[in-house]
Each structure stands twice: as C-alpha cells, then as structure tokens.
Design a protein around this nucleic acid. Sequence first.
DNA 1: TTGTTTGCAAATACTTTGCATATGC
DNA 2: GCATATGCAAAGTATTTGCAAACAA
Lengths: 152, 152
Amino acid sequence: MHSVQEKSKEKKLNTFKDVCKQHNIKLTPQRLIIYETLLDHPEHPSTDMVYQCVRKTFPTISFDTVNRTLLTLHELGVANIIEGTGNPKRYDGNVVKHHHFQCVKCKRIIDVFYTEYNSLPIPQDIQEKHRVQDITVRLQGVCDQCRDRSGK
Amino acid sequence: MHSVQEKSKEKKLNTFKDVCKQHNIKLTPQRLIIYETLLDHPEHPSTDMVYQCVRKTFPTISFDTVNRTLLTLHELGVANIIEGTGNPKRYDGNVVKHHHFQCVKCKRIIDVFYTEYNSLPIPQDIQEKHRVQDITVRLQGVCDQCRDRSGK
DNA sequence: TTGTTTGCAAATACTTTGCATATGC
DNA sequence: GCATATGCAAAGTATTTGCAAACAA
C-alpha cells in the first residue's frame, strides 16, 4: 500500500514536470515542493495549511507564493479547488474523478469514490442549451467523529 | 405564469411570517423586504446584489443588515446559500430541492430541476460511517451566452 | 540574457463583531 | 417595557495586485 502510493507520487511528480514544460512554465523548487506537499496531504488542505507545512522545510517561502502556486496547479489541471460554505478554498491533488462528503460541523472533507456518480445523466434542457464540462456530487452531513462527540 | 408566480410569492411571504413567529424572531420591515427581494430575484444574487436592490426602496438600510438577514433566512430554512469558486456567497429563496449549473466564465447560476438527481444512492461505506443529510449535484461548464460570445 | 517567478507590501473583497440606538411585540 | 434588531464603525479573514530583485532556461 505504502509503496504503491509512493510510486504513484513519483509518477505524478514526473507528470507534473512534463506538464510544466508543455505549458512553458518554469519548474521552480517552490512549485515542486508545493505540489509534493499537496500530494502528501490528501485531507484537502487550505492554502494556509499547505503554507504552514511547506515552511517547515522551506522557511523562506511566502504565503503568497503558495497561494499563487496552488492556483497555478489548478490551472495546469493537476489540482482541484474545493469550496465549502463560508470557508477558504481548499485544494485536492487527486485529479482522478471523485466526489466529496463534507461535515457541516468540523468542515472535514472526505473523498467519495463511487462510479455511479461518474456517469450521471445530464438533463436534456441543460444539455441542449449549455456546454456541461463537469458533474460533481456533493454530500453534506455530520461525520462519524462529530456525531460521536455530540452524542446525537 | 405570472399570476402563478405572484400567488406562490404571497404564499411564501405568509409562510415566512409564520416561520418568524415560530422562531420568535421579529418581523421587521427590513426582513420582509429582504426576503421579498430575494424571491423576486431567482438569479441567485449575492449579498451585495440584494443590498443594491433593497436600497432603491429602502435607502436607509445597511449592507450589514442585509448580510445578517440573509444568513438568518438561511437559518430559518427559507433560503439556501450557494457558493461558487472564489466568489461571494449567493442566495436562493427557492428551497424546493434542486441543483445548479454554474458557468465557469460569467459565474451565472442556473437552476436544474431533475428528479433523477433527487434520489441518488449513497455509497455504502459513507452511509455506514456518517450521517448524510443532503446530496446536491453541481454541473459546471460554459453557458449559452458565454459560448456564443467566445465563438467556441 | 531574458522573460518568468518570487517575496514583500499594500490593497481589495468579503464577512463578522461590538455596541449604542431604535423598534417590534 | 423589554428583549431583539438595526446601523454604524472597526476588526478580522481571505485573496489579489504591483513591483523590484532573484532565478530557471
């Protein structure tokens, strides 16, 4: 399990290097470490969470660079932006199609891999009028931890 | 068509008055006009859009009151909060279950009424672990207007 | 070298909080 | 009359922009 993850991480980093070349953007150490950090944190960190983590090994990095880089990663298609209700943006380095469950209490985001959600039909009227590029399902509720805590 | 909408608006306003009583919150003119304005604007306005509109007939109202009232409406269950990518909250006075298509270019939000989305299955692993309260489908893409404009 | 990127600082956008005054019930 | 709500101001949080210096290619 661990080695599989490591392997896929290496693979992703290599892909990332290629993507940078293709888009003519420079492969700076900041970009690399930010992307790597994102891959290491599947818990959908916010910009600040990534910043705090990257700082540990790269103390001179600015929050600003982290923020811009995460947006760049999204533009490059190697990271997704997830947004909740009234919260900062959160990022996801896993671009394989999946969905999310978010806890309304602790704001935790849990990945939902469920193939049935990946082939939902598009309503005809929408389909005919607009260009639909993506469909995601968003589950909301109370996660196990919060339910246990509150006793509800 | 028009009369039906008007009728349902009256009905909603009456329901709103009841809901206020039930929750022991006061029926102020501000709250009424804000809710009414939200019902009159099915295009999912932001706080500022509602504020600009209410000001026209109620010039002394503060942005602040609009903001707090919209949050109150949401707490009362008569309005939903919709959030897009990197944008301010937007509100929806239509609490009948529905979904949204958002244009990635102009950020316009279009209602999607599609019964198939209202009874999606919940993945077993999620169902067993957490308490799922709501499922919404979010379509993203380019709307007809933006597609025409860009010629793509 | 050269155009991109970084780090810093300031600005902007959006939301929230504290509090005195006003007002619905 | 009393508790809640409003309006204002200020603070807080998140993000964006401008620019000189640093750096990848």
